[in-house]
């Protein structure tokens, strides 16, 4: 698992690549939470388009960050335009868990207001 964090105005872009399972979920949430508190960004967008594996640990990471970000009055976005065949699988898991009842889908970063 690799995490790339980039800030654009009030938006924190979180690109996670590789494999996201329970083994790396703790590290991922620690690093993201630290960055949210350090930069005091309002909104975050998750880019999972280049994951090569994800299980229910991904649901926990997304919903946990959604809670933090909404407490601080921000919005959590999720990029839905992945090109890999594995990304369809990621979307299937997240749809199944009802994650998009809380997290906003977006096709591009423009939609997140940057």
């Amino acid at each position: 698992m690799e995490l790339e964090m980039k800030r654009k105005g009030n938006l924190l872009i979180l690109k996670v690549t590789g494999e996201l399972d329970h083994h790396c979920a703790d590290e991922l949430r620690r690093r993201i939470d630290r960055e949210i508190l350090r930069t005091l960004v309002k909104d975050v967008v998750f880019d999972f388009t280049e994951l090569t594996f994800m299980d229910s640990a991904g649901i926990g990471v997304l919903m946990g960050r959604y809670r933090t970000v909404s407490h601080l009055g921000g919005t959590t976005w999720f990029l839905t335009e992945g090109k890999t065949s594995y990304f369809k699988h990621v979307m299937k898991i997240l749809e199944m868990a009802g994650v998009f009842n809380y997290i906003h889908k977006c096709k591009s970063l423009k939609e997140c207001g940057v």
């Binding site: 979920a25 949430r29 299980d55 229910s56 649901i59 926990g60 990471v61 919903m63 946990g64 898991i93 199944m96 868990a97």
Partner: peptide
């Protein structure tokens, strides 16, 4: 508390 989604068995089933 540890952000478990409770979806493990549902995913295994699906």
């Amino acid at each position: 508390e540890n952000e478990r989604s409770g979806m493990g068995f549902t995913i295994m089933e699906s």
